[in-house]
Computed example of a mutant assay.
Amino acid sequence: MGLVEEYGRERVFNTPLTEQGIVGFGIGAAAMGHTVIAEIQFADYIFPAFDQIVNEAAKYRFRSGNQHNAGKLTIRSPCMGVGHGALYHSQSVEQFFMPAAGLKVVVPRSPIQAKGLLLASIRDENPVVFLEPKILYRSSVEHVPVDDFTIPLSTAEVLQPGKDITLISWGAPLYSCVQAMEMLKNPPASIAQHVPQSVRNASVELIDLRTILPWDRKTVAESVAKTGRCVIVHEAPITAGAGAEIAAHLQQACFLNLEAPVRRIGGFDTPFPHVHETWYKPGPIQIMDGLVRSLTY
């Protein structure tokens, strides 16, 4: 709010409704040395600009032998389910960019994280896709410092230390993970019979990945090597989701430490539904069930 009045219409302006045009314009301006923050109104509509992002922005530095780059470009976009967005306004798209060397992909979980990670993204020397879980715009509340500060990219955060199982997520599903951890300790009466006493006091290590590309392999692998079990949660469909890449790496890096298969919990392999979004997104019960299955394997 107030950006036009503060900085003028030469710096803050609306563009034609063409995603490839918005990103293409941003790449050109960034290549000329300007700091560019482009907004795609919904992550679902980032696909028309996919060619510009992965074939131009991501490869610009490489193809020119570092003579030119689009590293001053940050692309913001709201993502994930909000309760009524349906198939064209609720998707998670981070997995589509994971093979795009030259890009960074970031997903914050809260207002403080959003400020620190966004400023870090803007100042990073690489183009960044910054995906903002839209349901958190009005549901996540924190007192954000007014001072300038950044949070390092590609650094996961251990939100709660644990020793029995590692739980990994990013963005909005982290709040469901916290609920699932509480539910594991004190399951509702309706499902208590399905939660063995032996796992109710399990020590769960919760990790916020924060940067999806390139992700913090060291922190995650050290955690899983310690706990021997891992559950990965994301809203995107299970098939070829970001969790698949993480699970494949952990199978290689932690094979001799694993006490159970790495379990993934995500959306169904269907388009995001018109109704009943809460059945599609991984909720606390689904996550708790994943924890129980891994702990009792």
Score class of each variant (00 low, 15 high):
2 G>Y: 15
12 V>Y: 14
13 F>Y: 15
13 F>R: 07
14 N>I: 11
15 T>A: 12
17 L>N: 05
19 E>P: 06
21 G>E: 01
21 G>I: 00
26 G>V: 03
26 G>R: 03
27 I>W: 14
27 I>V: 15
28 G>E: 09
31 A>V: 07
32 M>I: 08
35 T>G: 04
42 F>N: 02
47 F>T: 13
51 D>V: 01
52 Q>S: 07
53 I>P: 11
54 V>T: 13
54 V>M: 09
62 F>I: 09
64 S>I: 04
64 S>H: 06
69 N>A: 11
75 I>F: 11
82 V>A: 12
83 G>Q: 09
83 G>K: 10
88 Y>Q: 12
91 Q>R: 09
95 Q>Y: 15
95 Q>F: 15
95 Q>S: 15
96 F>Y: 15
97 F>V: 10
99 P>M: 10
99 P>D: 07
99 P>Y: 09
100 A>E: 08
106 V>I: 13
107 V>C: 08
110 S>F: 08
112 I>W: 07
116 G>R: 07
117 L>Q: 05
119 L>D: 04
123 R>W: 09
124 D>F: 04
125 E>W: 00
126 N>Y: 01
142 E>T: 13
142 E>Y: 13
143 H>C: 13
145 P>I: 14
146 V>P: 01
146 V>Q: 11
148 D>W: 13
149 F>W: 11
151 I>Q: 10
154 S>V: 12
161 P>T: 13
163 K>N: 08
163 K>Y: 02
165 I>W: 03
165 I>F: 02
165 I>M: 03
167 L>C: 11
168 I>P: 06
173 P>S: 10
178 V>G: 02
178 V>F: 13
178 V>L: 12
179 Q>H: 06
187 P>Y: 02
188 P>C: 06
188 P>Y: 07
189 A>K: 14
189 A>N: 12
191 I>N: 15
191 I>L: 15
193 Q>T: 01
193 Q>P: 04
194 H>W: 11
200 R>I: 10
200 R>N: 10
200 R>L: 10
201 N>W: 01
202 A>F: 06
202 A>I: 06
206 L>Y: 07
206 L>N: 07
211 T>C: 08
214 P>A: 11
216 D>E: 05
216 D>H: 06
219 T>P: 04
221 A>T: 14
223 S>W: 02
225 A>P: 00
229 R>A: 09
232 I>W: 03
233 V>T: 02
234 H>K: 03
238 I>V: 14
245 E>C: 11
247 A>Q: 03
250 L>F: 06
250 L>K: 01
251 Q>T: 15
252 Q>G: 10
254 C>W: 00
257 N>W: 00
257 N>H: 06
260 A>K: 04
263 R>D: 01
264 R>T: 05
268 F>A: 12
269 D>G: 07
271 P>Y: 01
272 F>T: 13
272 F>C: 11
279 W>H: 14
282 P>A: 05
283 G>T: 00
287 I>C: 01
292 V>T: 02
292 V>S: 00
293 R>L: 13
295 L>T: 04
296 T>K: 07
